[in-house]
Design a protein around this nucleic acid. Structure first.
Length: 599
RNA sequence: GGCCCAGUGGCUCAGUUGGUUAGAGCGUCGCCCUGUCACGGCGAAGGUCGAGGGUUCGAGUCCCUUCUGGGUCGCCA
């Protein structure tokens, strides 16, 4: 039976009661975690988001009616207890914040009874995620998830405080906006008033924040929801949150400076982690050459070696062919793994093939200095020695080589490096290694579309010294773009934007846009730029990823209150769902699938 | 769209080469217990082995299809 709480007022959260309250009468409310019934004495652990507090119901000290009520308490009942804070008689529980005290209950109200939950409400749950997500409101009661959600709230509060002090204004931008075909797929929202026309949910507030710069709000930020209709991953959800900012009259160093101080503050105050400033910077080219990735994990070595020059005259056709086709041969040295069984090496070869490699060449250096290799028969002994030397190979090492186009070699070795580090546990899980990656290529050649695409977006400013090559050698133009990377995860990124219309026109030309096509898509931005636009630059963080790393979780689902699963549906609400014919009619939409979802 | 992993009482799992009545721990329910906190004692209930089909004298186990969830490649300016 559920009772009213009329006349009662909660005085403390459970874990807010402390030794300082000894002798006081308090009223606490929460969920029953567990009861331990000793016959004439009942213990109940009461839980809320602050933690646990032990309540005792003593048959000799309270009314028979209250005791009988306590006898019937079950897990997850919501109760209100008034009682006195006392020291524990039976010894302290060092595992509990409130382990030295307990509440000697005087009155008890059962505010709500509860069925037995489908899985245990406890930290470190081993329950299948499918079930947890179906009953997300129960999953969210678990202490580790509550800690994550509270951490997230704290970080948002710190971000707002810091940026406000730095002169930023928090401004909202529209959720119903305009679809643009560049980039990710948009989520579309039909317009009732304009049959056949659609809004798009924003992939990011990019254009609007640039317009705010045009309007003179020289420092803007927003904790903004963004939407992308692409396939999910452990660190990708169809809707996610960005800490988005834009600044006027600044260059790269200004943006980096304010963001380093922001990161230092939130890590210090939310997690106690000190970041030493300034954060290391590395160009995109260096990151690719050394780590095969534009988001390198710097917590361990195993860097790439370019051995193209060493093997360019060898008879091994795999190496030779790749080099002649304009590619390269690079390798990583897996220290001390020369004894790796053939089966495991084969598994690594398969792993590499998953990234498009045709194979993986290897040399295991035996303890006596001899080689066990997949391609030694094609090589002269002195070539093998030179290769081992170039790789800094020592007895007991395993050398792995990829030979192909540069991009593929980077991808394969970059992924292999991470895979091996994870298998061999080469990094410290408590370490936070930040790095700024700078000087990204402005453009990326798309084989599929037969034209250059913007690596970041079409408003990214080229580096001044590379501007002359925009028409002649677009591929070598670097951008004033930067990413902040933490432990191999891209936390955020941004750029200086183009504010000169001649540069913007050249950029669109490089992308193969006609002036008309550019105006069709971004006309309101280009028009705005005619009326006085300040130089500006910005950055956006993936808030979910940031919290995931701070909370040491492996998936952003564990830091989002109500996440979606792989096919972008919600197991709890069962969204998305089919809608009434009437609703569709009103929106002038015809659906091509039958009601059961079959084509 | 491709590849890989998982699905067995409420939860987490075991289940041998295909062979009797599918087991365990936790939880749940009942009785007992005044210092427990992974409480304890005694007892009990609880299963279409994700679904469908096939092979077989016989399928949780082998084969095919399919559903669900996870990881990943493609994709994500």
């Amino acid at each position: 039976m559920a009772e009213s709480m009329q006349g009662l007022k909660r005085s403390h959260r459970c874990a807010e009661v402390s030794k300082g309250n000894l002798g006081e009468q308090v009223t606490v409310m929460g969920w029953v975690q567990k009861t331990r019934n000793k016959g004439g004495l009942i213990f109940a652990d009461l839980r809320d988001r602050s933690g646990l507090l032990q309540i005792t119901f003593n048959s000799e000290k309270i009314s028979e009616e209250t005791f009988n009520q306590a006898y019937k308490l079950r897990s997850e009942f919501v109760i209100a207890v008034t009682g006195t804070v006392v020291e524990r008689e039976g010894g302290v529980n060092p595992n509990l914040l409130t382990g030295e005290i307990e509440i000697a209950a005087e009155t008890l109200r059962v505010l709500s009874e509860a069925e037995t939950p489908p899985f245990p409400i406890e930290a470190n749950s081993r329950t299948k995620e499918e079930l947890r997500l179906k009953y997300r409101y129960l999953d969210l009661r678990r202490p580790d998830l509550q800690a994550n959600i509270m951490l997230r709230s704290k970080v948002c509060m710190l971000v707002r405080t810091f940026l406000a002090e730095e002169g930023f204004l928090e401004i909202e931008t529209p959720m119903l906006t305009k679809s643009t075909p560049e980039g990710a797929r948009d989520y579309l929202v039909p317009s009732r008033v304009h049959p056949g026309s659609f809004y798009a949910l924003p992939q990011s507030p990019q254009i609007f924040k640039q317009l705010l710069m045009c309007s003179g709000y020289d420092r803007y930020f927003q904790i903004a929801r963004c939407f992308r209709d692409e396939d999910l991953r452990a660190d990708r959800q169809p809707e996610f949150t960005q800490i988005d900012m834009e600044l006027s009259f600044v260059d790269v160093d200004d943006v980096i400076d304010v963001n380093e101080r922001l990161l230092a503050k939130i890590f210090r105050e939310a997690t106690g982690v000190e970041i030493s400033l300034p954060i290391q910077r590395m160009t995109w080219q260096e990151a690719m050459d050394r780590f095969g990735s534009d988001k390198p994990d710097l917590r361990f070595g195993m860097e790439l070696h370019n051995v193209t020059d060493v093997v360019k005259d060898s008879a091994f056709v795999v190496f030779k062919g790749a080099i002649e086709a304009g590619g390269s041969v690079r390798g990583i040295n897996v220290k001390g793994q020369g004894g790796m069984p053939r089966k495991k090496i084969d598994a690594l070869v398969e792993f590499a093939k998953g990234y498009g490699a045709k194979g993986l060449a290897y040399i295991a250096i035996n303890e006596d200095g001899t080689y066990k290799s997949s391609f030694a028969k094609f090589m002269k002994p002195e070539e093998m020695d030179a290769l081992a030397t170039a790789m800094e190979g020592e007895p007991g090492d395993l050398l792995l080589f990829a030979a192909d186009k540069n991009k593929l070699v980077y991808d394969v070795l970059g992924a292999l490096r991470l895979e091996l580090a994870s298998q061999l546990e080469l990094f410290d899980k408590d370490e936070y290694r930040f790095v700024w990656i700078t000087e990204f290529p402005l453009l990326e050649w798309s084989e599929e579309q037969g034209r250059y695409l913007a690596m970041h977006h079409p408003f990214t400013m080229p580096m001044e010294e590379d501007l002359p090559y925009l028409e002649t050698e677009p591929g070598r133009v670097r951008a004033k773009a930067y990413d902040i990377v933490l432990n191999g995860t891209e936390l955020g990124g941004g750029s200086v934007r183009i504010h000169q219309d001649d540069v913007q026109e050249r950029m669109f030309a490089a992308l193969g846009f006609t002036k008309d096509a550019a105006y069709e898509q971004f006309g309101f931005l280009l028009n705005a730029f005619k009326y006085g636009v300040p130089p500006h630059a910005g950055l956006a963080y993936g808030l979910d990823r940031l919290i995931m790393l701070m909370a040491k979780e492996n998936s952003i689902r564990d830091v989002i209150a109500f996440p979606k699963v792989k096919d972008a549906s919600c197991l709890m609400s069962e969204a998305p769902n089919r809608v009434d014919e009437k609703q569709l009619e009103e929106l002038a939409i015809a659906v091509m699938t039958a009601p059961d979802g079959q084509e």
